[in-house]
Design a protein around this nucleic acid. Structure first.
Lengths: 168, 168
DNA sequence: TATTGTTATACTCTATAACTATA
DNA sequence: TATAGTTATAGAGTATAACAATA
């Protein structure tokens, strides 16, 4: 509580702005490609990609919500769109009847496979092309540590609710 | 054209995911604070911050659009909100009657000043707390280089239009 | 009672296209 | 003709609250 007023020196400010700008530009480029090449928003792609990565291509709604989308209703909305397009299926979980298991369909896997090369190409071209091997190693290490820290730090306005992220 | 199919090794994938995750978490945290503490979206804060930083607190709409918002109409919308709240004023430019000069008001400066400490505090706490001085230097250097590269690289679907960013 | 998920609803934001006005 | 900006409009996405069902 009440630390001695944080400051950001100009080096920190520069790094902060660069981070925001780089990730914004990257996400715009990647989002644009996903929409043009697969009619997918970035959120939808992330959902599909997580499912493709999961064992048996299945995850519970709650597992998906943790880490991709901000509210449960938002995920329901996105899942509804993907379901309508036949890219996923939803069914009550046998283990826990409250839960819904989401599964990627073959069509979903094919769409991810179709879209992935161009996605990767853009990330490579924009993000990694101007990096050396040392740059990459450091960046990965530092950002990985920061991510773990962010995940560990309790949210300022600590809410008791689980799987929260943007609750206002 | 047609390079030999870009790939991302697992180190690159890890760095890419970490970057997206870190910037997302950071922006959520910061956005949440700005809304709670100043009823500002991140975009609105960026507009005000850029104006506060500008000579005489003034910029043309076009200058603001380059680097903050994606479409001219989007900026008009946001500027309308800020104008309505008395945080900026808009007036035709004397130099070029087509242009609109946007100026931060005192109220706008005060709001930025009010909100800035908490903003900085969160950035510090989330992003810089787990970094060493070397980390920071490297991160800033690498991300700065990447940003310049991104700004220089011609957009894939090169559009002739100026000040574009997300044109569909 | 707590958790999982959906629905209804309202709102914010963004983009497109058409338009005005100045260079 | 090209540039600067606004407006009308439509659509995507998100959050909140109320709800049903299961644990």
């Amino acid at each position: 509580m009440s630390e001695p007023a944080a400051r950001l020196d100009s080096e920190q400010l520069g790094a902060y702005f660069a981070l925001i700008e780089v990730s914004s530009l990257l996400q715009y480029a990647v989002d644009e490609h996903l929409r043009a090449d697969g009619d997918l928003s970035y959120v939808q792609f992330q959902i599909l990609a997580r499912l493709v990565d999961a064992p048996d291509g299945r995850l519970r709604m709650t597992d998906l919500a943790d880490g991709v989308v901000y509210s449960r209703s938002g995920l329901t909305y996105q899942a509804g769109l993907l379901d309508k397009r036949g890219l996923i299926t939803r069914a009550p979980s046998p283990d826990d009847e409250r839960s819904v298991m989401v599964t990627v369909t073959d069509a979903g896997r094919e769409l991810v496979a179709h879209v992935l090369p161009g996605h990767v190409e853009r990330v490579h071209e924009l993000l990694f092309a101007p990096m050396t091997g040392t740059d990459l190693a450091t960046l990965g290490a530092v950002l990985g540590r920061v991510r773990d820290h962010m995940r560990a730090v309790p949210p300022r306005s600590a809410k008791p609710r689980a799987s929260r992220k943007r609750a206002g």
